[in-house]
Write a protein that binds this DNA or RNA. Structure first.
Lengths: 343, 343
DNA sequence: CTGAAAGCGCTAACAC
DNA sequence: GTGTTAGCGCTTTCAG
């Protein structure tokens, strides 16, 4: 067994020496600089690189170029399993893929609260820019963004915005319009009493979704907000059941996301309430797992993956051009039909 | 609006000059080196650091220390949304948190196939070690590991192993025992014809889970393997329905994971087959989404998060000590009772 | 088309 | 307890 650590990795100098050229020529070959190296020299150098198994060392280049070639994604979420939400998975995958195309890496960090955030912020800066997704109420989210602003890195805020920050862009989806159109279809099916089920630990889009539902319902239906624990599924079902007891069975329940909508389906099933005949249900985001629900929950499909790509592209543009192309980008959502809304 | 890019970030030298000390003294303060700096000097330096908003630049330290302070997680998966699987979320979160505690970052990369892998491998090395999760058949997985071995980084293989590789460790869960015990409970409930539903695009644990089921069933029940598309849920349901047509309704279906098990529940529901009275169903891994299934799928809970932590700790140990403490670690699984197995 | 020199920010080793 | 020196691997600049 040989260990990598036991022998020094080959450097640019090793390649140059073995190929009998200067380091600069090797560098030109590696960076594919057009027409600076003769064909012969190039193939010779490439052979040596292959023989030696040479790979450029990022820290040397980073130091010289004053660039880390990496972007951070920081997620502030009370659960240590901070990637469990499909929304974040897709954002992360979209970012990672878009960054990889540009030769950048994605560094992912999850922190549970503001103290955790301060701790990682104290670390050395290994990124050129940051993206952040924060759950929690508006005030604590804004504190989070302010802490990150002080790092003097370009910042992209996901699913939220805070216009007073400098050197920041935000990218989100049109939750308001999506929720409004969703509620419209409930109204068209005759809903007059709508329950909006919001998570007890909130996140930025919840407010916009509730506002969209209320805008559609305005003077046509009554909207009641209830809380629904999102992390403990059974507790969430119980909360919906107790809402049934307090308020009676409404015409429709809109969950702040599909998880909550599915909890409503389970609650209805326990009470023997027919979906969609007696009670209509809707969720939000339409990630693949919604197909596990029976009947299939009607939802609104989220462009989460595209949001990740957009975040990455915005930050890369900012890094190269010293300004954001577009400080606020809103991606549109689309209806995701299911079997829990009539018609 | 001021942009970070427009002004040079303060360096160690700036701090040293302003505090009237040498760079080395500042370095000693930053790295909290015991008793090398007087209390007075220390507080003066800390004040200056705060005033200037100084944060050490990782590339300088990396170059000097020959260490990147980052570990990579490479996922080889045909879907570009490579983090959609809860297994990988939890592994990634576990790794990220364990690494952050040690001052290391996690760089996540997803590639769709071996060509994609070769492309990112050609990039500069920005990590000290690598973890890999590969789906696909045994042969292509082994090719993937061999490619990564050539990078001469310490490597941790997740949910798989390949003993002939040097400088490599593997970490996985005891899928065999979990599946065997699961099948035992099916046998105890009287199952004689068991269907094992495996995904069409396989991944490492599938073989071990099937082997566990077969070991339990040995001479006591007949096990038939069917394919079930895991990425297209509806197609998977159709495959199970057509297996019903070909083979009749078995006594039990064991899905290679919960997604597939839930597809079996849906298929049974379409045929009006009673669960668990007529057909028992089981899945594997017991991530939170299994609660969306109705009835709750019986499963086996996976220590995926702990696997992530273990991978991180193993690699950190390897980096510091130039050898792996334990080249092969198997974490145990636990029954996750549900309502789809009788008794 | 190729080469030599200088320096990016940081820290180990050693002097004082 | 503090300062000096040297150099990690790479690329920009400028000379040939």
């Amino acid at each position: 067994m040989t260990f990598a650590g036991s022998r020094r990795a080959p450097t640019l100098r090793d390649v140059a020496d073995k190929a009998g050229v200067s380091m600069m020529t090797v560098s030109n070959v590696i960076n594919a600089r057009a027409g600076r190296v003769s064909k012969d020299t190039q193939t010779r150098i490439l052979t040596v690189i292959d023989e030696l198994g040479y790979r450029p060392q990022r820290s040397g280049r980073s130091l010289r170029m004053q660039r880390e070639y990496a972007i951070g994604l920081t997620i502030v979420h009370p659960d240590r399993r901070f990637l469990d939400d499909p929304y974040l998975n897709e954002v992360a995958a979209g970012m990672s893929n878009a960054l990889a195309n540009a030769g950048y890496g994605l560094m992912i960090n999850g922190v549970q609260d503001i103290d955790g955030l301060k701790k990682i912020v104290a670390h050395a800066a290994g990124v050129d820019a940051l993206a952040v997704f924060a759950s929690g109420d508006r005030e604590s989210r804004h504190e989070i963004y302010r802490i990150l602003e002080r790092l003097h890195h370009p910042l992209a805020i996901i699913q939220d915005d805070m216009p007073e920050l400098s050197d920041t862009c935000s990218v989100f989806q049109d939750d308001f319009a999506g929720a409004r159109d969703l509620a419209d279809s409930l109204l068209a099916a005759g809903a007059e009493r709508i329950v909006f089920a919001a998570p007890t630990h909130t996140w930025p889009a919840v407010e916009r979704r509730e506002a969209g539902v209320r805008a559609a319902a305005h003077r046509r239906a009554k909207v009641t907000r209830i809380g629904c624990n999102e992390t403990d599924f059974q507790a969430g079902i119980d909360q919906i059941l107790s809402a049934f007891d307090r308020l009676g069975i409404p015409d429709a329940i809109v969950g702040a996301n599909d998880q909550i909508g599915i909890a409503a389906i389970h609650a209805a099933s326990r009470r023997g309430v027919a979906i969609p005949e007696t009670l209509m249900v809707a969720g939000f985001n339409a990630f693949p797992f919604r197909q596990f629900s029976l009947p299939l929950i009607s939802s609104v499909s989220s462009p989460a993956y595209a949001i990740g790509e957009t975040v990455a592209e915005s930050l890369l543009y900012r890094i190269d051009n010293n300004r954001f192309a577009n400080p606020k980008q809103v991606l549109s959502v689309a209806p995701a039909p299911g079997a829990t809304i009539r018609n």
